[in-house]
Design a protein around this nucleic acid. Sequence first.
DNA 1: AAGTGGTCTAGACCACAAT
DNA 2: TTGTGGTCTAGACCACTTA
Lengths: 241, 241
Amino acid sequence: MAESKSDIIAQDIAAKIQHHQFKAGEFLPSESQLTTLYGSSRETVRKALNQLTALGLIQKIRGKGSIVLNLEKYSFPISGISSFAELNKSLGMHAQTKVITLKKMADMPELFKEKFPEQKKQAGFYLERLRMVNDEPAVLDCDYLFTPPINDLPKEAAERSIYDYIENELKLDISYATKVITVEKINNDFQKLLQLDDSLAVLVASHNFLSDTTLFQLTLSFHNPQKFKFTDFARRQKIKL
Amino acid sequence: MAESKSDIIAQDIAAKIQHHQFKAGEFLPSESQLTTLYGSSRETVRKALNQLTALGLIQKIRGKGSIVLNLEKYSFPISGISSFAELNKSLGMHAQTKVITLKKMADMPELFKEKFPEQKKQAGFYLERLRMVNDEPAVLDCDYLFTPPINDLPKEAAERSIYDYIENELKLDISYATKVITVEKINNDFQKLLQLDDSLAVLVASHNFLSDTTLFQLTLSFHNPQKFKFTDFARRQKIKL
DNA sequence: AAGTGGTCTAGACCACAAT
DNA sequence: TTGTGGTCTAGACCACTTA
């Protein structure tokens, strides 16, 4: 992946925090110590530490040092764009994916036209998957992947991880996403699939982009409200918008 | 405030994007141009651009330039720790805050003990506020502010903005927060206050910290599900956790 | 006074895009 | 080849904490 030196340092320190080699509440080695430890310049070390700060792994305190934050205590943040497959791996849940629909279409299905009215007609793949956690339906994921740049989508990729397929097979660079979380009424079919008593579900709607700003995927995730949990780590904004 | 040079540059460019002086889909001046424009080194300009990248205002493309992203199109992200008062200002909604309860306590109310069972007994201020948007109840905010470091909390501050009070009067440095969003049943009192037909509400529970990692505030925000909307901008994670 | 993080600089070299 | 962003460096100076 051509990782930079600062990424490697960040990765290494992150792993050591995860494995409690650096413990919560304690200080990391000082920047000058890390500089000699990793054989790099101070700015490079600082770049790595800034990544960890943004993730909520550490907090830097001027004059004192970088303290390791207690993640587990406040429910660990799952931010960034994470796919379902990746989520399972990092948490250790018994999860399963059932592909309900996978088909090529000349235009988006009605559901997407309704939820994303600003989108123009475009060919793509429609994918519907039910996510089971501990053998109970938890999430219904509906994806629409635009056909350029996604020209093919094998069923195996849909069952395993489309992000892995897109990044490693198609060599596309997934970069960022905008997400909107709301509570909505859903249709009977979906209600049955999710085995809900009520018609209300949590909807996470997202636009997903490549690094060249191409919109390549729209997603509608319908969550069982009882099982829905979204955690976030946020730093106070310096820049006023 | 002691703003750094890179913060000023970031602020300035952000403002120009907001005012459409730099338009969505177009490129910013190149880094070397910005360097001469702001009379700073390239690394300082890059630091500013990195902030804008993290916020989702721009996307950098190697060999081409930094492109301004279209925020409005995909519902503008309100991330970071934002207070209700600040939110109103940046969006332009007619909003109002009614203080229902404000009292000093020797220990947390039952509701907080239930939702934050890991917390020990500690004195503080309990604050209950109803947020009205367009004259309809939208959010019920319940706060518990620990008494060190919050030793006093005037009613005016609660009505206006406790964050403004904490930062500008008490001179404390609010730094980060962890948030968890779930859907929960609420009690009858809250249901009436929010004028809900159903007993389900969206709960945003947060731990709020100062820059020295002190936990100073717990918040339980109960949202009317019909009016709830949470938007997020997320970049793909390089570091695996 | 010594150690820590915060900021800024000037310059170097690389990778990629456009021509 | 030229211009763009990506990374790294060595050094400087400042602000804060601790002793």
